[in-house]
């Protein structure tokens, strides 16, 4: 026999799963309200129907990737410039290594720009990645102006027929105004050479981050017009559920996920798989 309302225990369990996946209170309550509403409209719901509704509601919160697979933006613009930003230690430099590997395998000419001139041995780290993947890198000495490194990188890209440029930046907490302004400056300086650059601003979020990721998305978006997100460290037990609310509110798609420390550990974000994983017990 059917039920006209979803029972409270089921909703409590659902609430716990969502909160435990870092979805956050507000977003969780919104999802639950939507489910209750649909359950009311559709009158009859068994568990599997409920699950389907749940998954479709959550799917609808994840912004569609603006670039349909058929029209590869990297193909259309040359050089295609990706600037990678995020707070400290989330996995920016590693993600760049993985992206370089991915693009190179697609037959593209890749160039890296070492615009983190601040953190100890950041340039060395990116240099090792460039060697691993076997792509060129533009760098200056530690402490150099990051905007000037980015500019040099673009100049080199133009004269060397490069397809994809990826600019590393120093990790910075989003509440540090000076450091956020520095990002805007890097952008502006790149635009002197290529007015449309950067074509992509990739915000890297650590999958184990809680609700603070919201603030990160908000502040990085307002400083640099973030166009896509990468969610890292999903090979652990954390679920990264905070991106649901972020993607929904800021309409920024998650484009990549990181699932390890090797160059092959990058995946294209799959919405369905992600939603499944939210409810998968560890």
């Amino acid at each position: 026999a059917g039920k006209t309302k979803v029972d409270d225990d089921v909703l409590d369990d659902l609430e716990e799963s969502l909160i435990s996946a870092d979805v956050g209170v507000e977003t969780t309550l919104r999802i639950i309200e939507r489910i209750q509403k649909r359950a009311k409209e559709e009158k009859y719901l068994n568990t599997s129907e409920l699950n389907n509704i749940l998954k479709s509601e959550i799917l609808s919160m994840l912004a569609e990737n603006t670039a349909p697979e058929s029209k590869d933006p990297v193909q259309a613009t040359k050089p295609y410039v990706i600037m990678v930003v995020g707070v400290n230690g989330v996995g920016k430099t590693t993600t760049i290594g993985k992206l370089a590997y991915m693009f190179k395998n697609q037959g593209k000419k890749v160039l890296l720009g070492a615009a983190d001139t601040f953190r100890a041995a950041a340039v060395d780290q990116l240099t090792i990645w460039a060697e691993r993947v076997d792509v060129p890198i533009v760098k200056q000495q530690m402490g150099a102006d990051p905007a000037s490194v980015a500019f040099d990188t673009l100049k080199s890209a133009v004269s060397n027929d490069i397809d994809v440029v990826i600019i590393d930046t120093a990790g910075r907490l989003h509440n540090k105004v000076n450091l956020m302004n520095e990002l805007s400056k890097i952008r502006r300086v790149m635009q002197k050479l290529l007015p449309d650059a950067p074509h992509e601003v990739l915000l890297v979020l650590d999958g184990s981050t809680g609700q603070n990721a919201f603030m990160q998305a908000k502040e990085f978006t307002s400083a640099t017009d973030v166009t896509a997100m990468a969610l890292t460290k999903l090979d652990g037990t954390a679920k990264g559920g905070v991106v649901l609310g972020i993607s929904d509110q800021f309409k920024i798609p998650v484009k990549y996920i990181g699932v390890g420390e090797k160059m092959t550990d990058l995946k294209i974000f799959d919405r369905t798989e992600f939603v499944e994983s939210l409810f998968r017990n560890v």
Partner: peptide, 12 residues
């Protein structure tokens, strides 16, 4: 431990 860690902090 990173102070921005979410729900997974307990497992880790």
């Amino acid at each position: 431990v990173d102070s921005m860690t979410g729900q997974d902090a307990v497992n880790t």
